[in-house]
């Protein structure tokens, strides 16, 4: 089976040929497999957003190639158009893209651009709305009357309604409260479990990435610095810190406990797992 997305030697410069030229990506080679959940981390300005804008052809690489399902997206106009529908891109603060009279109409914008028929569009709107938990009543409201979190979910539904085989999120939880954040991350994992869709998430939250990702890609100064499982990446704490990143808080606590001689594993990435281990540890002591 071919890779869901493959980047071959992709280099990208902003404002090429002017004095303000910035090389945002340098010779990136990357594959994303079908059905994976990939987390992308990197400090501010490292090139994460630039990277994901290549996945659906919004940016044209200065050099190099982007392949989706094994076909070069720049092969023809049609393949480029198809890439927009195969890879759904959900930008940071997607709520600012809402424009229609009603939420339902806004969610239907993507499917309409795909030239689907009325019934199919209706079905997709209903399905996408249920994924993000928008009630029928909300669907008939103006998107501008929703709360911030609801707007965000409406916008995400707008991308989901295209039923892309790869869904890419750029900091989906930015600016949400902890509860909203948790809810959103759950919504994304649920969606992925239900549809088996490939998901890529850019996030500044090490906790979220450690909790849900199958694989983590670390971007540093336009290059891929690390690429591996959560274990592999977060065990390199010092390197991450030198790139202005960090490991989840809970991981730091556990590696400290481990260093102090407690009988706990070092590689703990979620609070739930950590609680479990500590509880087991305490109970073990009691029973002694």
């Amino acid at each position: 089976m071919s890779h869901a997305i493959e980047l071959q030697n992709v280099t990208y410069c902003y404002s090429e040929g002017t004095p303000s030229q910035v090389t945002a990506l340098k010779d990136i080679n990357l594959t994303i497999e079908q059905g994976e959940l990939v987390g992308i981390i990197g400090h501010t300005g490292s090139g994460k957003s630039t990277l994901i804008s290549h996945f659906n052809g919004l940016l044209k690489p200065t050099s190099g190639k982007v392949l989706i399902d094994g076909t070069d997206i720049r092969e023809s106009k049609e393949t480029l158009r198809q890439s927009r529908f195969k890879v759904g891109l959900c930008f940071q603060y997607p709520e600012y893209q809402l424009f229609e009279e009603t939420v339902a109409k806004d969610i239907a914008f993507g499917p309409k651009n795909m030239k689907l028929d009325e019934d199919e569009i209706k079905r997709r709107v209903a399905v996408a709305a249920s994924y993000v938990g928008l009630s029928d009543e909300m669907l008939e409201k103006s998107p501008f009357d929703l709360s911030g979190g609801e707007k965000r979910r409406a916008a995400i539904a707008g991308v989901m309604a295209m039923e892309p085989s790869v869904l890419v999120f750029d900091e989906p939880a930015a600016g949400l409260d902890p509860a909203g954040r948790k809810e959103l991350i759950k919504l994304i994992t649920d969606y992925r479990n239900k549809t088996g869709c490939t998901v890529v998430i850019v996030s500044h939250s090490m906790e979220d990435i450690a909790k849900i990702a199958d694989r983590v890609i670390v971007v540093n100064d336009g290059m891929i610095a690390m690429n591996g499982t959560v274990d592999e990446v977060f065990s390199r704490c010092d390197e991450l810190q030198s790139m202005g990143l960090d490991v989840p808080e809970i991981t730091r606590i556990f590696s400290r406990l481990h260093a102090l001689g407690f009988d706990v594993p070092e590689n703990v990435y979620s609070v739930d797992k950590g609680t479990e281990i500590i509880r087991a540890l305490i109970e073990g002591r009691r029973s002694v």
Binding site: N56, L58, G88, F91, F109
Partner: peptide, 27 residues
């Protein structure tokens, strides 16, 4: 930013006649 977001949803800003293009600007 907005153009990119709408293009990601398949908005077509480049082709079509004047009327279609004007309509494409609404989003």
């Amino acid at each position: 930013r907005i153009m990119n977001a709408q293009k990601a949803r398949g908005a077509d800003l480049e082709t079509g006649g004047i009327v279609e293009r004007a309509k494409a600007l609404v989003p």
